[in-house]
Nucleic acid binder design. Structure first.
Lengths: 353, 353
DNA sequence: TAATTGAGGCCCGTCTTTAGT
DNA sequence: CACTAAAGACGGGCCTCAATT
C-alpha cells in the first residue's frame, strides 16, 4: 500500500494533513493528474463518465487548484495589480470598488499598491507587479515624467491601463472627459448670469487638472468673458478641503476677489468646493447667495451639504469597469489597436449655484 | 558550450528571453542555485566573497525571486488578504490605506475582496484567501452568524485578525473603543446642557453600532436622563447620508421630536450626522442653533461643514497598523495569547454642538 | 571537525508526447 | 485513424544531505 501523503482511500473530505492536491483528486477519481488538469482547463475531450468522477472527487475533497502552482507553470497569474496615488480618496476608493467587483466577475484577484505620488514608490510598485506576473495593471500614474522610460519598457511585457491619467500618447487609458465636463459646468454658471473664477486642484494628478482648467478656459472664451484663475500651489497635497479653504480665503482677503468682479467659483473637485464654501463663510459670504460655488465629482455627501452643492457627476464606476474590460480584452488576444475611452457624466444642478 | 536558456556569459543585464531566474544568477556568480537560494533566505553561512559575487550578479541581472515559486514551495505566500464589506467608505478606505502602507513596510502585498455584507461573498472571499495561502487575513466580518462555523475552521489553518468586528470571543481583533467614545461624546453633550437623542447606524456592522449605542445609554443612565433612541431600520445600507436624512426627517415631522424634549442628536457616524443636519434644515431647524448635532469618526470634511461638526475622532490608521502587527507577531511564532486591542481617539468639539 | 557549497528531490500544477482501445 | 488517458518533463525556487576544503 504505497499511497502517497494523503490517503485517498479514506474517501471522506477529511484531509489528513496539508491541503488537498490534484494528486488526491486523481487518486480518488481513479485517473491521472494529467486528466484532472485537463478537466480544469478546456474540459473538452473527456468522457462524460470520467468527467463526472472527477467532478465528484473534487466536490468530495473540496479541491481547489493551487493558484501559485498554476501561475508558476503558466508564467502568468490571475491577479491584476492596481497602483494608485492613495486609496482613501473618494474617487480612487470608488474606482477600486468597481475594479474589484469586475475583477471578481472575471475570476481575478486584485492586489493594490499606493504610490503616494512618489515616483520611486510607483516604480517599486510596478516592479512588484512585474515579479508577480500579473495579468495586467491598472495604473493612475503620478504627475511626473520620471518613470516614463520604465513605463514604456514595462508596457512591452505586461498590460497596463492608465486610469484617469496617462504619461505618453501610445497607451491605453480610461478617464472622464474632463475638458468637456468642466466646460459644461462653466457654461452652466455663465448661463445663470455668473462670472465664474476657477480654483484648480493641487498638482497631484495628470492630466485631469489641466484638462479641467482647459474646459473652463474654453467655456469662458466661448462666452467672451475674461477668465479668472486663482493662483495654484506647486505643493502636492491630498487634503483638498484645507487647500481650497486656504487658497480661497487668501483670494478673498487679498481683495483680488473684489477687483475681479467674479460672482461664482468653479472648483476642480467637490472637496475643494467644500473648503471654498467654508472660506467664504469665514470671510462673511454666504455660499449660494453672495457667491455661487460649484464642484466636480458629486461625492455622496455633496447633495447633503448646506447649501447642496452644484457639481458634475463623473461615472467613476464605469471608468473602473472599463479599465478591467480593457485588460480582459487584451488577454483575449484581440489586440485591436489602442483602447482609449473618455466617459461623460452629467451636470447636477443644486442650490449652491 | 551547454549554457541553459539564458546565456549568462553575456554578462549584460539583457535577458535574451523570459524572466531572469535563480539559475541565471547562479551561473553568472559561478555558484549553484542552492547557494543563491541561501543568500536570499538566512544569508548566514556564506563566505563574504561568495555573497559579494551573488550580490553583484543579482544587481547585474536585475534578479528578483519569483514569488509564486517561493509560495509554492513554502506553502505560504507573502500576501495578506483584506476582506471588507465595501472599500469606498471613508473608514474602510483609510484602514486599507494604513494596512497597505504597513504591509509594504513588512515586505508583503495586499489583496482585497469586498463582501458587500453578503455572507456568501464573504465565504467565497475567505476561501480564495485560503487557496492563496495568504500570510494572514484582515477581516471586517459581515453582521451575520452565518459564517461562524466556517470562520472557526479557517482560524485553525490561517491567521485572521478581525478589524472593527468579531464574530465570537476567542479571536484576535482590533477596533475602536466604541462604547467609551460614544459615552464621551454623550457626556459632552449632556455637559453642555443638552438632552441628546441618538441615531444609530444601519445594521451593516457588528458589534460597533451596538457598542456605540451602549455608550450612549451608559452616559445617559449615569446622568439620570431618560435615553431617547430613534427607531432603527433593519435594512442594511451604506448610504448613510440618505439613511440619516430620512430617519431624522421622519422623527422631526412625526412630532416625536417635540414630545421627547430632545435638544441634541448624537449620530453613530459623521455621514449620518450630515444627513441629519440636512433633514433638520429641511424641517426648519438650524443645526448648531436650534438643535445640536454630533457625529463620530471625524471625516476629513467634517471640519469644513457648516456648521463644523462636533465629532469623535477614532484612530483608524492605528487600527489598521495594529491589524498588520497582529499578523506579523503571529508569523514570528510567538503565540502569546490572544491579540485584542481597543483604541481610543479623542473628542473634537466644534460648532455644531 | 567545522564551515561552505553542491546535488538532487520535491512543491503542485501544465503541457507535450506516447500508449491504449 | 479517431478518441482518451497516462507518462514524464518541466517551471523556479527551497531544503535536506552529502561532498569538499
Amino acid at each position: 500500500m504505497k499511497t502517497a501523503k494523503n490517503a485517498a482511500s479514506a474517501g471522506r473530505s477529511q484531509e489528513s494533513r496539508g491541503p488537498v492536491t490534484m494528486h488526491d483528486v486523481a487518486a480518488l477519481a481513479g485517473v491521472s493528474r494529467a486528466t484532472v488538469s485537463k478537466y480544469f482547463n478546456d474540459g473538452e475531450g473527456l468522457k462524460p463518465d470520467t468527467r463526472a468522477r472527477i467532478e465528484q472527487a473534487c466536490r468530495e475533497l473540496d479541491y481547489v487548484p493551487d493558484p501559485h502552482a498554476v501561475s508558476l507553470v503558466r508564467g502568468r497569474s490571475r491577479i491584476v495589480g492596481v497602483v494608485l496615488p492613495v486609496v482613501n480618496e473618494p474617487f480612487f476608493a470608488e474606482a477600486l470598488r468597481a475594479i474589484e467587483q469586475k475583477a471578481k466577475a472575471l475570476g481575478m484577484d486584485v492586489i493594490i499598491q499606493c504610490s503616494y505620488n512618489d515616483p520611486a514608490e510607483e516604480a517599486a510598485a510596478l516592479m512588484t507587479m512585474r515579479s508577480m506576473k500579473v495579468a495586467g495593471v491598472v495604473l493612475t500614474a503620478v504627475a511626473s515624467r520620471q518613470n516614463l522610460d520604465l513605463l514604456r519598457r514595462l508596457e512591452q511585457e505586461m498590460r497596463i491601463v492608465y486610469l484617469d491619467s496617462f504619461v505618453h500618447e501610445d497607451c491605453d487609458y480610461v478617464m472622464n472627459d474632463n475638458r468637456q465636463s468642466m466646460a459644461m459646468l462653466t457654461r452652466y454658471l455663465l448661463g445663470r448670469g455668473h462670472r465664474p473664477a476657477y480654483l484648480g486642484a493641487p498638482p497631484v494628478a495628470h492630466p485631469s487638472p489641466t484638462e479641467r482648467l482647459a474646459g473652463y478656459l474654453e467655456a469662458m472664451a466661448e462666452a467672451g468673458v475674461a477668465p479668472l484663475v486663482l493662483p495654484a500651489s506647486t505643493q502636492p497635497t491630498w487634503d483638498f478641503e484645507a487647500y481650497g479653504f486656504r487658497h480661497v480665503l487668501d483670494w478673498l482677503t487679498s481683495g483680488a476677489w473684489q477687483r475681479s468682479g467674479a460672482t461664482a467659483l468653479a472648483c476642480g473637485t467637490d472637496r475643494l468646493a467644500i473648503g471654498a464654501m467654508s472660506a467664504c463663510r469665514r470671510f462673511g459670504l454666504e455660499p449660494g447667495k453672495d457667491i455661487a460655488i460649484a464642484g466636480h465629482d458629486d461625492l455622496p455627501i455633496s447633495a447633503y451639504l448646506h447649501p447642496p452643492l452644484t457639481t458634475f457627476r463623473q461615472d467613476v464606476a464605469a471608468i473602473g469597469v472599463a479599465a478591467m474590460e480593457c485588460l480582459q480584452a487584451q488577454l483575449d488576444g484581440a489586440d485591436a489597436g489602442p483602447y482609449r475611452k473618455r466617459f461623460t457624466g452629467g451636470l447636477v444642478p443644486r442650490e449652491s449655484a
